[in-house]
Design a protein around this nucleic acid. Structure first.
Lengths: 198, 198
DNA sequence: TCAGGTATATTCACTGGTCGGTATACATAA
DNA sequence: TTATGTATACCGACCAGTGAATATACCTGA
């Protein structure tokens, strides 16, 4: 396996990722995954114990890149803190206009696995959301204070995941921008409250 | 068919509703629906053209009762407008603690049908969410003004749907209460802004 | 009142196809 | 020779949907 090339296992995860994200977990058969990855189904079962394992690998592979995307959006946004938070939502709205956009893979997977709370993919999903929440909280803390950062980060996550869900239903990116405005409002109010506590 | 009894068609929709909500659309077979309804599969196909038809009927049957629930929660809540909005979320959090609670059936169905935006169940889902949004907007308008009510209602919907989704993933009803606080904050800020415009 | 007909409602048995997963055999390289 | 990896072919279970026959309720005309 030369540098830059993908191992068979990685190719399977990549193929599965595209299909799972595009169509959903239950809608995609292992036959389809194997074909897209260019391997036989038996080869798949050499590398993975089950489809459930593959679903977990799919989400685990998206954890870090997804967080990095939010971080980049936040880093390049201009203006004060509320504006930079709103910048995340503006980038989200831009992404959502892409025809292949299908919402948040973590949330969608959790819907399909709703009766399997212990499923490794559910565990991975929860860990990812918590990681985003912690990072957001760290970014907010210098301006809103220690006690206020965490609940505010949770409120922003709620708006973000709401935007994912509503956009998926309505296919109207304006909702994501409304969420961004709400987020900016909440951050602004928290900053004002923090200044009042000085 | 005596008064108070259900027609065969209604019994099928009721059985399907419980199964679809509890397990998901794709996870439930027509065999399971037919058995739960006490009919044969062939009888099902006498009353419905396809499974897709049944999914649409399932959501259409939940539209009015769901809206009525929100209206009741809002009506019985005490305090000022922000407190009554927050009351909706508190009732939501209470519901979510029930073991059979599985989030919002409309949102979950839209996740499963993400690649069929014209599906009648998707249309029903969008109509339902719009109906809730319009009602909320009407409730808000007297206190926040004509122009502000609609975007504020959308923000509250985003928080509500975010709460549904996050709760489904984390199974931690505290998030719904956080959403309620954010909602109350946004309503309060909108009222203050409206008073400033006088 | 009732015979005959028609539309509604229901049943059993079945089809073609897909699903996740496996048995077995073959290839290659250390 | 042995561990790793791949291929073909297959399995039992399940799934959405169907064919053909039958039961029930209601209507009409005599």
């Amino acid at each position: 396996m030369a540098k830059g090339e993908l191992s068979t296992r990685e190719r399977i995860v990549e193929a599965a990722g595209k299909l799972f994200y595009g169509e959903g977990i239950r809608a995609v058969s292992l036959d389809a995954v194997a074909e897209k990855a260019g391997v036989t189904k038996r080869t798949f079962y050499y590398h993975f114990r089950s489809k459930d394992d593959l679903v977990a690998a799919y989400l685990e592979a998206r954890d870090q890149p997804n967080l990095a995307l939010f971080q980049r959006w936040f880093a390049v946004a201009e203006g004060d803190l509320p504006a930079r938070v709103e910048g995340i939502f503006q980038n989200l709205a831009r992404s959502a206009r892409h025809p292949k956009w299908k919402g948040c893979g973590f949330l969608r997977t959790s819907v399909e696995l709703v009766n399997l709370p212990g499923h490794p993919a559910m565990v991975a999903g929860r860990a990812h959301k918590k990681r985003v929440e912690s990072w957001l909280s760290e970014m907010l803390e210098p301006e809103v204070g220690t006690g206020a950062a965490e609940p505010l980060a949770q409120q922003l996550i709620l708006l973000m995941d709401g935007a994912f869900s509503v956009q998926l239903l309505h296919r109207d990116a304006a909702y994501i921008e409304v969420a961004g405005q709400a987020a900016a409002n909440l951050v602004r109010a928290a900053i004002t409250a923090a200044e009042g506590r000085l």
